[in-house]
Simulated assay, not measured.
Amino acid sequence: MLRIEGLTTSYGPVRALQDVSFTAERGKVTAVLGANGAGKTTLLRTISGLVRPDSGSVHLGEHDISRTPAEAMPALGLAHVPEGRGVITELTIAENLHLGGLGRGRKVTPGDLDRVYDLFPVLGERREARAHTLSGGERQMLVVGRALMAEPSLLLLDEPSLGLAQRITAQIFALLRDLVAEEGLTVLLVEQNARSALSLADHGVVLNLGRVVADDRAEVLAGDDQLRHAYLGF
């Protein structure tokens, strides 16, 4: 379980998050929604240790990770897939995946790689191809697969559908749904496409100008016409 309490984060004089509190339940998908500039990406970066909060706390299970450096997060079970599909283009698919397993404290095995190839068959077929040859959708599969190599209990995903065809997005969302159902993975999903995110999520949190303006079950948020029109754009 992820528990956020009173989280406030600033960039110099600009306050990006203000007293944010919510809980992401274990084995569930929680969607974080809101317009550009709402603080969604800052929230993920604060949780994963890339940005230090001014105040408040972040608990992953029994661990207070509020001041934990980003490089220590994989060993605690947290993996972060930032926006942008960042792969190391000079390396092969297999080499990129190996990097994902480095932070968990044990050697990567062929079975670990095979698990990702089973999830994303196209990566298995092209495992020796260099990452610069991949399409946008294949790169998104690779960065998700690389995060899963760390065997996380909590997966942070920032805009995984951005710039992708609807078919590829549906495939990735279906995979996430299966991982949550079968392995108890907890997912915190930042997504601009609120309609798609709420169709996948169990719970939703809506941010506006760095503050939580709604925190409820996904179906409740999807059915609130006033909230949708004011903050979610559909």
Rank of each mutant, 00 (worst) to 15 (best):
L123G: 04
V87M: 04
Y231D: 01
L155D: 02
R177N: 03
N208V: 03
E219Y: 05
R67G: 12
A70Y: 11
L164M: 08
G111E: 14
S55L: 09
L142N: 00
L198T: 00
D178Y: 10
G103D: 03
F120K: 10
A197G: 11
R3I: 13
A150Q: 09
G137K: 03
V220Y: 05
Q18E: 14
A94T: 12
L232G: 01
A147M: 07
T186D: 03
V87P: 06
A147D: 00
R126G: 04
G233I: 15
Q166E: 12
Y117W: 14
P53I: 11
G12F: 03
R139G: 10
L91D: 00
S57C: 13
G101I: 10
Y117D: 01
L185F: 01
N193F: 05
E138F: 05
G101H: 00
T186R: 05
D64E: 11
G223H: 12
S153I: 02
L99V: 01
T169A: 13
L2S: 08
R85T: 07
V87H: 07
L207D: 03
L99F: 10
R106L: 10
L209G: 06
E25M: 06
A197N: 12
G56R: 08
E128N: 15
D178S: 12
R85I: 09
F234K: 13
E5A: 15
A218K: 04
G37I: 08
E182W: 02
G137V: 01
Q226W: 07
G84N: 10
E159M: 13
H132M: 14
A147R: 01
E138G: 02
K40C: 01
T42M: 09
S161V: 01
S161R: 13
E128L: 15
K28Y: 06
A24K: 02
S153D: 03
L164H: 03
E219S: 12
T41H: 11
F120C: 10
Y117P: 00
T68F: 05
T186F: 07
P121Q: 07
R3H: 14
T8A: 13
A222N: 01
Q166I: 13
L155A: 00
D114C: 06
T68W: 06
A230V: 03
E90Y: 11
S66H: 12
N36G: 09
D202M: 02
T23Y: 08
G12S: 00
G124E: 05
G137N: 03
M149D: 01
A35Y: 12
A70P: 04
G86S: 11
